[in-house]
Amino acid sequence: MAISMKSAFGKALVGVMGAGLIASVSTSALAAWEPDKQVEFVVPAGTGGGADQMARLMQGIIVKHNLMKQPLVVVNKSGGAGAEGFLSVKNSKGDPYKIIITLSNLFTTPLATGVPFNWKDMTPVAMLALDQFILWTNTEKGYKSAKDYIDAAKAAGPGKFKMGGTGSKQEDQIITVGLEKATGAKFSYIPYKGGGEVAVQLVGNHIDSTVNNPAEAVAQWRAGSLTAQCVFDDVRLPYKAKVTSTQSWNDIPTCKEAGIPTDYQMLRGIFMAPGVTPDQVAYFNEVFKKMMNTPEWKDYMEKGAFSQTHLTGKEFTDWLTKAEATHKQLMQEAGFLAK
């Protein structure tokens, strides 16, 4: 009690001082809020997936570089395609000891299941990165280009070619639908549990293509079992270091270049509970900014060929508004909205 009284008093004092002082004094240095107990880091997905990996990496970096005084504890709440995690944050109004990492299910889960939550029910903190998607095929099949593959799929007839992906009515299936719209080909979409499993199913020729994230399929790409056909982005990936014996991430054409114009990126962002103060958001923003400057983070970004877009504040909310509208439109067209 004593501690919280003191800090409340301190804040009030700083507030008074701040009002009296000239604007040039950096208030953030004075008024900085800091957690006085451990912070829960909610992952709205199971252990071992992409979001979970990133959360645990962040936890590790923060520990290693001593970026937070209080521990950050990762908690998986994966029920109902992540709805459980989002609802737990939504329902902790004003609780600054809870942050959540997002994946595309921030948009897709409420639309597909009708579970009532929306990103506006939480406080956006920062976009850490965007995850990319690539069209992969099995090298044995010998498709020269994305166009080549799509033509083969069209020639085989609707539903004959199988597209594997993670989850149902989530990002992978949305991309598949986008691809179908752009090209006129029709796939049978097969939902699996995890990205790694999908990549291996492709190597085993149980499916014809996938839209795996770079990190999920890179091992098989480097071993020569999979071919990267095109990346679902407007611009090529920036990483020019050779990953396979002949190719770098940068050598993969965009799907637009390949003649099948489709693009999609997945948000890796951080949110807090509704009703937290700007001070509290600022604290976490500062922590993440420092974290993103560490070599470990940069290395992870390059290994997974992430798009390093860091947005906060209004830019971030603008991006979210736009992304939500896009998802709604895509899912409506695909008939994925909850009945």
């Binding site: 979970d52 098989q220 480097r222 071993a223």
Partner: peptide, 12 residues
């Protein structure tokens, strides 16, 4: 996940 974080790429 740990292997990836340590910079090791599991796979063939």
């Amino acid at each position: 996940g740990g292997l990836l974080i340590w910079g090791l790429q599991p796979g063939p």
